[in-house]
Simulated scan of single mutants.
Amino acid sequence: MRYALGVEYDGSGFSGWQRLSQPGEAGPPTVQAALEQALGQVADAPVATVCAGRTDAGVHALCQVVHFDSDAPREPRGWMLGATSRLPPSVAVRWCVPVADDFHARFGALARRYRYRILNRAVRPALARQYLAWCRRPLDAAAMHRAAQALLGEHDFSSFRTVHCQAPHARRELQRIAVTREGDEVVVEVQANAFLHHMVRNIVGSLLEVGAGERPEAWIAGLLAARDRTLAGATAPASGLLFVGPLYPRACGLPCEVSL
């Protein structure tokens, strides 16, 4: 049978999502390796997983969606609780749902959502610091929001991809981007059909220059048109980034939080 999981994790202690060594071999700690080991113990057999979107080292996830196949006779609750009990405290399986044999966590997703949180005050954070970026310079969130709207639609996002990005092309459809202020926090919400490597963090890094008054709002549109990563701002820290989760057609039968 094929199952889909909703997985929550704190990425602080991991080298990202993707397993960097063969099963059974020692390697850097990754979320995928930890999850596959836990599922394998529940199944009493090796389990391979596929995720909706790989996250980098230090990036967190509210609801990463994963699928896997297994012949082991386990109820969804057994997979959920059994795997979570064998995972480190920073990872939890929130739900498990049987899905159709052709369900695919990556290729079946219609959209993916990220949230980036910036603590904007003179003093660095002491609490929840692993979930925040910090900027001491006053930021104009409204200017950042206006500038970001130039990114909406389908474009070549070469200016916002890392040189190490392995995607065959840089065209992506940015469906929503919003920048708001909530007290001392500036929050960037982004939704797209898919993302390039470091795309969100590079967009945020450029928007920070606009928010700090170092660049005009029109600069973001110019960066997009230039398709040149060397012209854009620095990559924002991983700590502020949260993968909120993907979105799938309701016919897939997944929980409402990941369904359109």
Rank of each mutant, 00 (worst) to 15 (best):
L81F: 10
F157W: 03
C63T: 15
V42R: 01
R94A: 15
P88T: 02
P89H: 15
V31W: 05
E25D: 14
G27F: 00
A148E: 00
H60Q: 02
P88D: 06
R113T: 07
P23T: 01
R86H: 13
R129G: 05
R129A: 11
L81M: 14
R77V: 05
G53I: 05
L139W: 05
V50M: 11
P88L: 11
Q41E: 15
T55E: 01
S90L: 11
G40W: 01
T49S: 12
T49H: 09
A45T: 11
R137W: 11
Q149E: 06
A141Y: 05
P73G: 03
N120P: 01
F103S: 09
V47C: 04
V31C: 00
N120C: 00
P125F: 10
V47P: 03
L39Y: 04
P76E: 02
A126D: 14
F103V: 08
V93T: 04
G24F: 10
A141W: 04
L151I: 00
D101K: 14
G153A: 09
R86A: 14
Y116L: 01
A38H: 04
P46V: 10
L139M: 02
D56L: 08
W95Q: 10
A61F: 00
G40V: 02
R112D: 01
H60Y: 05
D156E: 06
C135H: 12
M80F: 04
A143Q: 00
L132I: 03
L119W: 11
P125M: 06
A148M: 03
D71E: 15
R121N: 05
G53V: 05
P73D: 13
R115S: 09
W134N: 06
V59P: 04
D102I: 09
R129K: 11
V31Q: 03
R74D: 01
R117A: 14
V91M: 08
R106F: 13
R121D: 01
R112N: 02
A143E: 09
G53M: 01
Q22G: 12
A38V: 10
S70L: 07
L20K: 13
G153P: 06
H67Q: 03
A122W: 06
G108I: 06
Y114E: 04
M80D: 04
R124E: 14
D69M: 04
H67I: 00
P29M: 01
L35W: 01
L81N: 13
A43H: 07
D56P: 09
S90C: 04
Q130K: 15
V93D: 02
A100E: 13
